[in-house]
């Protein structure tokens, strides 16, 4: 979220105040760090983990750091950002320069703009500059001809199941990659499909309810703005399978801006694009690229850093614009 977006900030403050769970306590450049433990809010700056340990090479004891990037749209060349490869490279350089190196990076889709072999090549080459693992989910722009995920799968998720879903464990948390862009629902809204939801139920069946769960997918897994297709038609079926877990963090992309919602023990968060912004929900004609004056672009794109300080607590999420990185 950004102090450049007072309307969004106000909406979050209102939502937070209504639930009484979170309170916005510190602004860090374009982002704010959220920490929630046992229903009590606390907060800190991105560098807080460093201060706690006194060691810039390590985060707080028992913590897990990872970074989310999204919507790099390699191949897009229109005025909203004529060089999306350059801004992806800037983002990667920023990650490489972080004093606390993340354990891994999550890319929440739309790696490319048109899923051509050339665009996939450019994206892979740039992302290979990251020394840590990168876990991907596809966006609808990564699906060849709108229906064939195989070229994406071969390059970015060769071991995945179905259309690209998988899970892994890290730092005591369980990470679940979901695909909601291959079979879209009425009005272009995302869809998971019954096979994926059945897999998800089975995937978490053995986990104790105290396990922090992080779900990531391209389309928002909440009805953020269905009028523009910003949601997932069968998200409720998936989230029901996660209801018993005490901490669920849902990370999405697609909408090229930070939006956040708290529902009980579930936190929904969408990340900025590394390429170009899009309008706020319902603002303007539709969800196309938003062309800003060139000097303002880097304040509207960026990345998200996530820290899990305690394996049983929710995650701290910091959004940073490239201009402030």
């Amino acid at each position: 979220m950004s102090d450049r977006n007072p309307k969004l900030s106000a909406s979050i403050t209102e939502a937070v105040g209504r639930r009484g769970l979170l309170k916005c306590m510190a602004w860090a450049g374009a982002g704010v760090l959220w920490t929630l433990g046992g229903g009590v809010a606390s907060s800190g700056l991105l560098g807080a983990a460093r201060a706690e340990t006194g060691n810039p090479a390590k985060g707080a004891a028992g913590s897990l750091n990872f970074v989310q990037i999204s919507d790099s749209h390699i191949g897009f060349k229109k005025p909203a950002n004529p060089d999306t490869l350059a801004t992806l490279r800037e983002t990667i350089a920023h990650i490489r320069a972080l004093p606390v190196q993340p354990s891994f990076v999550i890319h929440t889709g739309d790696i490319t703009h048109l899923a051509t072999p050339e665009q996939f090549d450019l994206a892979q080459k740039a992302l290979a500059e990251l020394s840590m693992p990168v876990h991907y989910v596809p966006g609808e722009h990564d699906i060849v001809d709108g229906s064939d995920p195989r070229p994406y799968l071969e390059r970015f998720a060769p071991g995945a199941k179905g259309d690209g879903w998988y899970s892994f464990d890290a730092g005591g948390a369980h990470f679940i990659a979901l695909v909601n862009v291959v079979h879209t629902g009425d009005g272009g809204i995302g869809a998971l499909g019954p096979a994926q939801v059945a897999w998800l139920r089975d995937d978490v069946a053995h986990l104790p309810s105290s396990t922090p769960v992080v779900v990531f997918a391209h389309f928002p897994l909440w009805a953020l703005y269905p009028e523009w297709g910003w949601g997932t038609t069968d998200a409720a079926a998936a989230l029901t399978a996660l209801n018993r877990f005490g901490s669920v963090t849902v990370l999405n992309g697609h909408i090229h801006q930070v939006q956040q919602k708290i529902e009980g023990h579930m936190t929904f968060h969408t990340a900025r694009s590394t390429a170009y912004p899009q309008p706020a929900p319902g603002q303007g004609a539709g969800p196309g690229p938003l062309a800003l004056p060139a000097e303002q672009l880097r304040a509207a794109i960026g990345l998200t850093s996530v820290t899990s300080r305690h394996v049983h607590g929710p995650l701290a999420i910091v959004d940073r614009a490239l201009a402030d990185a």
Partner: peptide
């Protein structure tokens, strides 16, 4: 229809080829 057209704009616009 103008308002509803927003849902088309993930892939289309009036004047540019895109997706």
């Amino acid at each position: 229809g103008k308002a509803l057209y927003g849902v088309c704009m993930s892939c289309h616009s009036l004047d540019d080829n895109d997706v």
